[in-house]
């Protein structure tokens, strides 16, 4: 059973509070490095696209936002499922903490996509499969957050919202494969596929750096929100006393 101790320790609020604090400075440092290189590389170093010229540079903020919108949702759903099945309070805290961050990335993916679609496609918005399924993702996040807010009892909020999060996860493969399953205005994947990425290294490296940087940024924000959730859930546990500065 020794191999499972790390999993069981993740069920311990003080342990998770401590490690999330220990990760935080490193996450912040590497977030800044990777997003810094990603944006500098994307806006300055990368050549313009042969068709889209400089407008293609929106990809360095749009694609990572869209990636995080889905990764954060999977995080919410997996954490919620672990919370339901193993009755793990920390897992419910992770789900509750990841949702607002994921919602913000989903909003950004839609907004930057709109700002890219207007000059290139010729429209701010259209009801194709990719755009529609991403909008549904935003509504799933908002529904999840509203459902949580509707309960006074935290345990009930955890359970009800977990079911919604788990049901909604079917939307994630739909978003990803929407451009394959149906013909759409949105193009296929450039990087997130099994084949070779459809861009040269000069454009690709900043994009990969940006994708990693956004992922680390999500992890960093999650650590901060998770600490807040744990404090709220631990009520008056004695280990909290020195942390919150109570006598």
């Amino acid at each position: 059973m020794a191999t499972w101790t790390w999993f069981h320790r993740l069920a311990s609020p003080p342990h998770v509070y401590r490690i999330s604090g220990a990760f935080l400075p490193w996450l912040a440092l590497f977030t800044a490095l990777f997003i810094g290189y990603g944006f500098y590389g994307g806006l300055v170093l990368a050549p313009p696209d042969y068709q889209q010229k400089d407008a293609f540079r929106i990809i360095y903020v749009h694609a990572p936002s869209a990636w995080l919108s889905m990764l954060a949702y999977v995080t919410v759903a997996v954490a919620a499922a672990v919370g339901l099945i193993w009755r793990m309070k920390v897992a419910h805290a992770v789900a509750a903490s990841a949702a607002p961050i994921g919602a913000s990335f989903t909003f950004l993916a839609l907004l930057t996509g709109s700002l890219w679609g207007k000059p290139m496609w010729g429209t701010w918005w259209t009801w194709d499969a990719r755009l529609t399924s991403e909008l549904i993702l935003l509504f799933l996040y908002l529904g999840y957050l509203a459902l949580r807010g509707a309960f006074d009892d935290r345990a009930r909020a955890d359970q009800a919202s977990a079911v919604l999060a788990i049901v909604g996860v079917v939307n994630i493969p739909i978003i990803h494969f929407s451009v394959v399953w149906w013909n759409s205005l949105h193009q296929g994947s450039t990087v997130m596929k099994l084949a070779r990425p459809s861009m040269p290294g000069s454009m690709l490296w900043p994009l990969l750096s940006s994708l990693l940087g956004f992922t680390l940024l999500f992890a960093a924000l999650l650590c901060v929100r998770l600490r807040a959730e744990i404090i709220d859930r631990e009520r008056t546990a004695s280990w909290l006393r020195p942390i919150v500065g109570a006598a």
Partner: peptide, 30 residues
């Protein structure tokens, strides 16, 4: 309404230029 569709391939103008004589190398797919 007329909208333009582009594919998922991105490349610098010089590369696109040198690919131009090859078939199917240019233009957005549908």
């Amino acid at each position: 309404e007329v909208l333009a569709k582009h594919d998922e391939k991105y490349m610098p103008p010089e590369v696109a230029q040198s690919l131009k004589h090859k078939p199917n190398a240019e233009g957005g797919g549908t």
